[in-house]
Design a protein around this nucleic acid. Structure first.
Length: 862
RNA sequence: GCCGGAGUGGCGGAACUGGUAGACGCGUCGGAUUCAAAAUCCGAUGGCCCUUGCGGCCGUGUGGGUUCGAGUCCCACCUCCGGUACCA
């Protein structure tokens, strides 16, 4: 009757939902609340990619499903819009980042709306909006008040090319994540946040939340809590010109204290200067300078030999009074523990390598290995350790810590890998810090709340000042201000906050986006938090989620929120891979096909997927007679393998794109994009369409009247499967179940309306536009989004009889039809009547019968 | 290296607490429809073997084991992916 035209009905229903506020959240509703959240995107110039669509479709299905099941759903969207790319673009073109951001947001919004996502757009937020970042600044003031924000002179990753400081996570292999520019270490004045103060709680409270185990494990590893002891080694005054000092070390193996044969200070350790004698000073300083210019990468991977120099100084092992040499070596990191170690080459492989390279004594204190061959890091019995001899490692640890504490040489201690959070950037496009530096005494003074937001001034130039300060430093009329307390001259802070800041609390603002009194109303927070389901990419598994948890705990401590943890359940959608088509170019300029793969003397020459010339199934180079190699890998512009969701919508419609992305495989798994796969789900949608609406040849098969038993059974089985799978986010199998049901309906001449309506209801969260259209075609009032969810009757899903598998010796030999409640006796009799089973039982003695009702009947024969 | 995850048809993937391996989709093959094609509909589709049957054997990365029965549990190993990297 009517043609399947997504390009016509999709925009129609999108407009309908918008006009009717179908997905507006009613905060006053008495329905149980459900908060389902996406990791909001950075609105980049490239627009939405299929990876976004995957996560957003998943949450959209959940949002629509929960609404149908009677929840009041909060499903918002917004923009994480501060960040480097817009600023980089401004540097190149002079376009204000605000303009770029606005344009990109417009594109993203259009794309998201074209996919029919059920967001409550009235709650849209934008981290660059002064009305939003006012509260980001407000939270910073809370952190500052709580003594959790401080200024420190710290060596940071300075990237001369970008003119900015980068966080560790923005540096990959010694180069900037964006642009791949070299990064060097340089001390600078920085804002730091004391996340380490929350390390234990961030660790312990992982128990309270339902995250995938691997994700929790990554957070645990990142926090890196280890138990051990701090031990003070007095410096030997005789060899250090009368220096009175202790070298404090952290060790997880205090049990090996008797085996400490030397000590190592990190090159940055403050005692290095004092401890070094004149004879060794030159060498030590040279070593120090060299270490300072090395990146972390060079200090680790590129260096297989452990370097270091002797200071000439000695320290005393408090446990046996032995004098041991103090070295400087860059395998000891200043940022971890105390920046100094006691080296036990017998039982630490790194120390063993160092000792072997520098000819230092190796003493065995734990038996069970051969310390002349390698360090013995495992368990064993203590030897050569005086009062610890004979103890196990575990016992010795306890014993020695008691001894250290009694004698005042140390104590049990805990150390973390987690460092304080470097919280400032030398950039323009970020939240300004709401503080000033008073000129007369250099004091930092926080702005009073009423002065928020402190807005970003307009600038002429986006170039970094070159000194490492942000472009803000060049705007004198903004920088020069007065102290809010004394009225005396002061300078504003010219650093801005990192991109993480805005994303650390946005989930709270969605609850109450227009509140002018507080970041979020306390009662509303109590109603909606924690987020029931949070879906996003695995790249945020550690940092974003850890930072947001930290801020949330601070807000909990100051009474802004009632919940300890922000995200009850987190799911990472898997990456979607693309197919790249490659030719390989030799040094002579010859192009090779797949035979060039893996050769070192060729360069990969990706051919954009749209340029590939197809000869049947064979991908060919567009200009040369060369077969292209097909490689499945991460989508990226440079590989020419990016799938643009807009193109898929244009060709098949939003419903097909949504459905395909969910049908590809389990949500959390990495999956390759197969362009032909879209045709499969598209075919499925047109099949339902024809079933309900008919086509040119046939009219609709829909009739009034009721369903027979078999149809009832198929329907209720399907409802059960789709309901359970949707609950578990097993969207791929839920779709498969709907496909099976449609295939079944196609085998029938007539289909009662009552048997199709529930299917349309179930389809609605997955392919919402088609479902709305079909719902009306079936004669119901719009909208199916308001029509609830079908219930199933367990009783109706059961058949009267079932097919029981019969095995002989555990091998399937036949099947028999038996009643649901069949007794063993009758099943055995029926099985013996089955010719296939008979053949295998013939002449054999049945020694045992295993009967599991509903599952299996197995004869064990002699 | 360490931590985490995964290996199932030509391909993406199904398989509840151990119980008929390969649902569903793609692709391929055959048929119907058509002047023809596309689209659509119906059917077949893990491999091998023979005496072509309601047949047999093999088959879930490899090698062992537990069990009446193993893709699923245990031990050892291989490969791939993700995270992390001198954290004392």
């Amino acid at each position: 009757m009517s043609e399947f035209r997504p390009d016509e009905f999709e925009p129609k229903w999108q407009a309908y939902w918008e006009e009717n506020n179908t997905f507006q959240t009613n905060a006053d509703s008495d329905l149980p609340p459900y908060y389902v959240l996406d990791m909001f995107p950075y609105p980049s110039g490239a627009g939405l990619h299929v990876g976004h669509v995957e996560g957003y479709t998943a949450t959209d299905i959940v949002a629509r499903y929960k609404k149908a099941r009677g929840y009041e759903v909060l499903h918002p969207m917004g923009w994480d819009a501060f960040g480097l790319p817009a600023e980089q673009y401004a540097l190149k073109t002079g376009t204000h980042p605000r303009e770029t951001t606005e344009q990109n947001i417009e594109t993203f919004t259009k794309q998201l709306k074209s996919l029919g996502f059920a967001y409550d757009w009235d709650r849209e937020i934008n981290t660059t909006d002064p009305e939003y970042y006012r509260w980001t600044q407000w939270i910073f003031l809370k952190l500052y008040e709580q003594d959790l924000a401080y200024i420190a002179e710290v060596p940071v990753n300075w990237c001369p090319a970008l003119g900015t400081v980068l966080a560790n996570e923005e540096v990959i292999d010694g180069r900037s994540e964006r642009g791949g520019h070299p990064v060097v270490r340089k001390p600078m004045r920085q804002w730091m946040l004391k996340i380490t103060e929350y390390a234990d709680r961030l660790l312990e409270d992982l128990e309270l939340i339902d995250w995938p185990e691997h994700l929790k494990e990554m957070q645990r590893n990142w926090i890196g809590r280890s138990r051990g002891a701090e031990v003070d080694f007095p410096v030997d005054p005789e060899t250090t010109g009368g220096l009175e000092a202790n070298i404090r070390v952290f060790t997880t193996r205090p049990d090996t204290l008797f085996g400490a044969t030397y000590m190592v200070l990190a090159p940055e350790h403050p005692l290095v200067d004092e401890i070094t004698d004149d004879e060794h000073r030159e060498a030590v300083e040279a070593y120090r300078d060299e270490a300072a210019t090395k990146s972390d990468l060079e200090r680790t991977e590129l260096q297989d030999e452990k370097t270091g120099v002797f200071t000439g100084g000695y320290a005393t092992n408090p446990v046996n009074g032995q004098r041991i040499p103090v070295w400087v070596a860059d395998y000891v990191l200043y940022g971890y523990g105390t920046g100094a170690i006691m080296a036990v080459p017998g039982h630490d492989q790194r120390d063993w390598e160092f000792a072997t390279a520098h000819d230092i004594d190796i003493v065995e204190v734990i038996s069970g290995g051969d310390v002349t061959e390698e360090a013995h890091e495992g368990d064993g019995t203590l030897v050569n350790s005086d009062f610890l001899d004979g103890l196990s490692v575990e016992e010795a640890k306890k014993e020695i810590i008691d001894w250290l504490e009694d004698e005042g040489h140390g104590k049990g201690a805990v150390s973390y890998k987690l460092r304080d959070w470097l919280f400032s950037r030398q950039r323009y496009w970020g939240e300004p810090f709401p503080v000033v530096h008073r000129n007369e005494d250099g004091e930092v003074v926080a702005l009073p709340e009423e002065q928020l937001p402190l807005t970003l001034p307009e600038v002429e130039e986006y170039e970094p000042s070159g000194t490492g300060e942000s472009p803000l430093a060049t705007i004198e009329e903004w920088v020069d201000t007065e102290c809010p307390e004394t009225g005396k001259p002061a300078r504003r802070e010219t650093n801005t906050m990192p991109q993480w800041a805005g994303s650390c609390w946005y989930y709270l603002r969605f609850i109450d986006p227009d509140n002018e009194e507080a970041p979020v109303d306390f009662d509303l927070e109590k109603k909606w938090m924690p987020v029931d389901l949070y879906v996003g990419g695995a790249e945020h598994a550690v940092l974003h989620l850890l930072y947001a948890r930290f801020w949330h705990k601070v807000l909990y401590d100051v009474g802004v929120v009632s919940t300890k943890e922000p995200f009850q359940r987190v799911v990472n959608q898997g990456m979607i891979l693309g197919t790249s088509y490659l030719a390989y170019e030799t040094e002579e300029g010859e192009l090779l096909g797949p035979e060039g793969a893996g050769r070192d003397d060729v360069t990969e020459k990706p051919v954009h997927v749209d340029k590939v010339r197809w000869e049947g199934d064979t991908p060919m180079h567009p200009d040369e007679d060369v077969v292209l190699d097909e490689v499945v890998e991460k989508m990226s512009k440079s590989r020419g393998n990016v799938v643009n969701p807009d193109d898929v919508v244009d060709e098949y419609g939003a419903d097909s794109l949504r459905l395909y992305e969910m049908f590809m495989g389990p949500l959390e798994q990495t999956k390759p994009w197969d362009p032909r796969g879209v045709t499969g789900v598209h075919r499925f949608l047109t099949r339902i369409w024809r079933l309900v609406c008919g086509d040119d040849e046939s009219s609709s098969a829909i009739v009034d009247g009721s369903a027979d038993d078999e149809l009832q059974r198929q329907l209720h089985k399907t409802i059960k499967k789709v309901t359970e799978d949707t609950d578990e986010l097993a969207f791929n199998t839920a779709i498969a179940a709907m496909m099976e049901y449609v295939n079944y309906l196609y085998k029938r001449d007539e289909v009662p309306r009552k048997a199709v309506a529930p299917l349309v209801q179930m389809l609605a969260p997955y392919a919402p536009h088609v479902a709305e259209e079909l719902w009306v075609q079936l004669g119901y009032e719009p909208s199916v989004a308001e029509a609830g969810w079908p219930e199933y009757d367990e009783e109706l899903t059961r058949e009267k009889t079932y097919e029981l598998a019969v095995q002989v010796q555990g091998k399937l030999r036949g099947t028999i039809d038996v009643p649901q409640d069949v007794e063993e006796e009758d099943a055995v009799a029926a099985a013996k009547d089955n010719v296939d089973v008979q053949r295998h039982l013939e002449g054999k003695e049945i020694r045992r019968v295993i009967f599991v009702p509903g599952r299996i009947l197995n004869f064990v024969v002699g």
